[in-house]
Design a binder for these strands. Structure first.
Lengths: 316, 316
DNA sequence: CTGAAAGCGCTAACAT
DNA sequence: ATGTTAGCGCTTTCAG
């Protein structure tokens, strides 16, 4: 690390002595404390401005014992859903004068634990998190509770504990998606999704099953394909489906990107979409209108963002 | 804001008095200073662990006068390019023990200025930035220079000033892309791009023009279409192209998403790709292999990330 | 309305 | 190898 040789900073002491007043008054004025007289305030503001004064957040936080920082742990950085949530969260926290530290777990519990530890040591005033695929328990979030640091889980959550949780109605969305396929005439619908340990996927699975049941279509275990939502997994799932006989005539896929990969793959093998297999995705990613034919999908991000933002505002 | 009622934190004073040693020794031990004897060190580590001690970064930074924080300002959050850069930067900074504050300008100079101001007040030890579309001058970055805070520009940069700059060879990439189209037999190639004020687009434009010239194809002003890389702009550009007669037979588009929208639009109007119009994009977004036909593109993100990471390591 | 003074938790001389 | 001590810049009683 190089020594940076930064110039000396202006402090409230400099302002105070230059203006022949006490540091206490300067401190109050800078906070716009109504107890300070307008003339003094103006003098102080002007001088601070002129000298390029900036508050030292470290001194302030050390004294005030809070960090004015919110941490957010996301499972990935590469989806429309996550970036729109991030953009919204950043806006809300910034407007409230909070810093945001963004961490991502890359779908790994190990990294998620490291992230929580790091953010804990940074003493965030609040934490927002979406769980990774393979997170098995929430022990690493316990320390926040112990210190009364509020935690909000969103999207990938653990419902059973007494956590603040922001989710959309995954069950209902999935029900509608499946119902839509059935009403198009589909009789044999595959469900391609991810680890059912995670609420979002188990709920969607429930919705899928119930929609089938209500239309008197028996659920068939072999039509449930679980993968990790990668491109490779999308291709493999498609190849698996292609081997089924008779071929399914519908697919409800819980991720738009995978749905697009799936579609490409089956088209390469000569199938027609939606004539041979109709497809519904999930997330409303930009990709949906760019592939051919365009993909039906569930508008997910907007719903989450709005609820999440309200939840954040309530903790800061 | 709610009072959070956090529990009392363990400090080095607590450890010192419990163990009957001085705070100086505790402080040294916690830094793993070799001057402290192994037995004392162990005693201190164990006790700190047991008590749930965590360093107070505010006290430390206040004392050491640096923040161990890097700021990054990106022009948007929604591209493969940006997220892969972000992921890389986060990895490097975290490994070096630095915090990362991510800000985004949403392609607006106003927001970019606000971001620089904010990060400046947060006293980042270094700044990384990619300029917004409509940034006109770099005055708002000057204050960092004045305080000797290193600034690295990447991707969208201003070449003329004496800035540290990380860019790929946009000229060359564009040259090759255009050359590729020409070698496919294209004679009339449109170039769809963004504000030429930004280096990335002006350089690519240069590459496009030079490739034409070297193949003795005269550059035609009307084939240059400048927009803001939005979906709407992609559609409008396509409609504009469709009105040209004779129709162009090639398109070099500096953004994969816009290229995909462009392709969709002209296909909707009955054109064939690449028979009627061949298309080359830029960025290597996932979308390229999902649209039909798949899009030729320039692999951009990887190049930038690698160079950028080296540059970051050199400033922290 | 303003000032004096204590102290937030840590680091780094400077002793010993 | 360990201890003492003086701040870093700010907020906040408590006193005028």
């Amino acid at each position: 690390m190089k020594p940076l040789l930064k110039d000396k900073e202006v402090t409230i002491y400099d302002i105070a002595s230059a203006l022949n007043i006490s540091i206490a008054t300067v401190s109050r004025a800078l906070k716009d404390d109504p107890v300070v007289s307008e003339p003094t305030k103006k003098k102080i503001f002007d001088f601070a401005e002129k000298m390029g004064y900036r508050t030292n957040h470290f001194a302030r936080n050390l004294r005030k014992q809070n960090t004015h920082t919110i941490g957010i742990i996301v499972h990935e950085l590469n989806s429309n859903f996550i970036t729109s949530v991030l953009a919204g969260v950043e806006k809300v926290t910034t407007e409230a004068g909070y810093d945001l530290i963004i961490a991502h777990s890359s779908e790994s519990e190990i990294k998620e634990i490291a992230n929580t530890k790091n953010l804990f040591d940074k003493r965030v005033d609040g934490l927002i998190a979406s769980l990774s695929f393979d997170t098995n328990n929430l022990a690493h979030f316990r320390r926040f509770k112990e210190k009364n640091v509020p935690v909000i889980f969103f999207d990938r959550v653990e419902q059973d504990a007494d956590n603040t949780v922001v989710v959309i109605d995954n069950y209902n969305c999935a029900y509608k998606a499946t119902d839509h396929l059935i009403k198009q005439g589909c009789k044999k619908i595959v469900h391609i999704t991810a680890n059912l340990k995670r609420n979002v996927y188990s709920e969607r699975f429930r919705g899928y099953k119930d929609a089938l049941q209500n239309h008197k279509i028996p659920f068939n275990e072999s039509l449930l394909i679980i993968n990790d939502l990668s491109e490779k997994a999308g291709i493999e799932s498609a190849l698996k489906v292609l081997k089924m006989k008779p071929l399914p005539d519908g697919a409800f896929i819980t991720n738009d990107f995978v749905a697009a990969v799936f579609m490409r793959t089956i088209k390469e093998q000569g199938l027609k979409v939606p004539e041979d297999i109709a497809i519904v995705g999930f997330n409303n990613d930009a990709i949906c209108t760019l592939v051919e034919p365009s993909l039906s999908t569930i508008n997910y991000p907007a719903l989450t963002s709005e609820k999440l933002l309200r939840a954040i505002l309530s903790i800061i």
